[in-house]
Amino acid sequence: MKEVTLREFATREERRKSSLFKAFSVGGFLGPYAICFALFFVFPLVFGVVMALCSFDGKTMFPSEFVGFANFEAVFTNPVLAKDFWGSVWNTLRFALIIVPLSILLPLGLALLINIKPPGYKFFRACIYLPGIFPLTATGLILLKMFDYHYGFFNAFFGLTLDWFGETWSAWLLIGYFCLWCGIGGNFIILCAGLENVDKSLYEAADVDGCGAFSRFLHVTLPGIKDQLFLCLFTTFIGYMNLYGQVYILASNTPDQDAMKSAIYRIQDMLLGSSKGYGYAAAMGICLGIIIIFISVIELIVTKERKGGHAHEERFVSWQKSR
């Protein structure tokens, strides 16, 4: 046994105990979250990638047969898989392109109105958020009944004869309306909070500088909520690329399913039957994820802050010299 002095021993012991204590506190606070994170995020992510590289039919606990990129090949080359999947991705993309701007502009307009704080604004604020907390299936069923071709309230009231859920364009219209109705609450709250945080003296400075209402909006309000707008853009786009529930509830009975199904819907379809195509579904999911990441990166680049450069400084120097 190597001999130690009391000083060495005591200092070593104390240091060890202190770091142990720190480690325990970190573990104690992080632990529960880390476990949940690993269990519900990391594990499925890893498992998904593994599934995509194996042929797995769901009859056993874990996939056993490694097939490399065969699943991905199938997603791109197998005629029916490719047609169905990429068709649905295209459907989803087109829908997202229309609904994402609406999903941001509408809540922005509402937030601006609420920001004026008219009498009763708290009530309106609650009403705008309320639709989001109702269950999707219940409200979807109400919508189905309301827009029923022959017995629906809407057709009866306006005297229309339009099979809302039979035609693709009207089905998408209603899906869009449904998405907006239950979805704007979230963005609305974020933009409301953003508007509150715009420095009031900026508005006054703009007033003194001679801005009208629209200029004020353009130069003070919009830049002030830039961060919130970008957040909404990212999250809304990713959310709508993963569209599923609304389409399933409203459009499952539409004849032209090829034009109605969204990407996630097709992925879910892989899991029908007794032989479930988990491999294909995982490969499709990863493809979809990569597309979403790609578009998000483009969004990131476009919305990045840019450095000022030196243009003005140079012009100033040359102006000085010319005097």
Partner: peptide
């Protein structure tokens, strides 16, 4: 039958 499209239980009423 009339064209009831995607409606269901169309015969009841």
């Amino acid at each position: 039958s009339l064209d009831y499209g995607s409606s269901y239980d169309v015969g009841n009423a």
